[in-house]
Design a protein around this nucleic acid. Structure first.
Lengths: 128, 128, 128, 128
DNA sequence: GTGGTCTAGACCACC
DNA sequence: GTGGTCTAGACCACA
């Protein structure tokens, strides 16, 4: 499982890391029970601050994707795939909305927007 | 055209305003050539600072959605709907990706995600 | 001598008017001694505020291009073409500099910038 | 790279700063990839408000001259010199026109105006 | 009255 | 320490 970050991106590094871990889970590269690299190890590999990785892991824990076991490490949760609750979909909807609106106002029609989402999902599943 | 903001949201106020103006355009409530409320007027209506609205309007101008005419006001651009370029869709894709990944990892399947996007688009078109 | 204004332009209306009067002089459409339209008349023709035209005329007078005779009107000065003084060229240089710099940084070479200036001068002399 | 401002000038401070950064790029003092001083640092050096420099930098970013990397700084863009497009030259032309007209009406001939432009370009390239 | 510009000072997220 | 965001209040040019 390789993680690559783009320091120049608008997206915060900690968020890039969380997202890529989630992508690894989706692709099956990271299976339930598997252990993530240590905070310090991953930080030095990526050349970023330890606190940044720490934040990523705690975000993932808050999302229920991993469990942080003090002194031992972070492990992928057994069953993160439980379907989305009403609150979750509402939250996702809120996050998606501004970008969807931007796409709509730039003249994309519904099919094009769906195709865009499809291309993202395909891309996530295939490689990185 | 009513604009409502949530000061407590983690989405910046200026961004909430920009998004709602774009939604108004999509719904046809704001037609090309129409004039937006003055920076100071809208600011006092919403109970926020002038500079916050100023930033919204300048962002919208940078996106090509409105034109700011000094001493006269901000008007909706004549042809904002020109279809999205390659760079634009790439940018949109980048912005969408983290949330789409989050939806995937939470167990939503492709149909559910498409339904979510559809519900957003419907919601944007209907009212607010 | 027709004057046209673009209310949408970044350039203030009073400045557009002054510039076009000067262009008329350069083309010979407005000869020394000729009388300009009245402030009120021109303002209503152009659909702008009287104060705006007033400002144009006073700017032109400050530049030595016209003379405002109270109760009588504004007349083109007899000899506006006296060559530029050191202070004038310095002032012109200051005004030109930011735009020239912008052209340079956008990748235009010296010849292209000269060609641009030439096209402006030709355009001024030909029509409007 | 030194930046000097004239608070008394009728040219806005933020614009003076942008122009001088562009001049530094033209002279090669600021090479692609180089990092500009921090917004707050430069502001305190020049004795102006942070927001003033912030506006300069965002304007330069809108012009494609620099890239602002949140939490990291502003860097000179790799390839700002891409030649000017039709719209760009039209815009430059509009900005140049009033001053060129003023020069013409003051009696300068074409050669003198070209010499003036040359002196500006030489001045920009040499020092400041 | 409108937008443009500027200041002073504040809190926050990120690194 | 960095940029991002926001507020409060000010003066000016323009219409």
């Amino acid at each position: 499982m390789y993680i690559q970050i783009e320091p120049e991106s608008d997206i915060p590094i900690y968020s890039q890391v969380s997202t890529q871990v989630m992508e690894g889970i989706i692709r099956g590269e990271l299976a339930a029970g598997e252990v993530l690299p240590s905070v310090r190890g991953l930080a030095s590999d990526l050349g970023v601050n330890m606190h940044t990785i720490n934040k990523s892991y705690h975000d993932l824990e808050a999302k229920g994707v991993i469990t942080i076991v003090p002194k031992s490490g972070a492990v992928i949760s057994v069953a993160p795939l439980k379907g989305a609750s009403k609150e979750q979909t509402d939250l996702l909807s809120e996050k998606l909305r501004p970008t969807v609106v931007e796409a709509m106002v730039s003249g994309m029609n519904d099919d094009e927007i769906h195709a865009l989402v499809d291309s993202i999902m395909r891309n996530v599943r295939e490689m990185k």
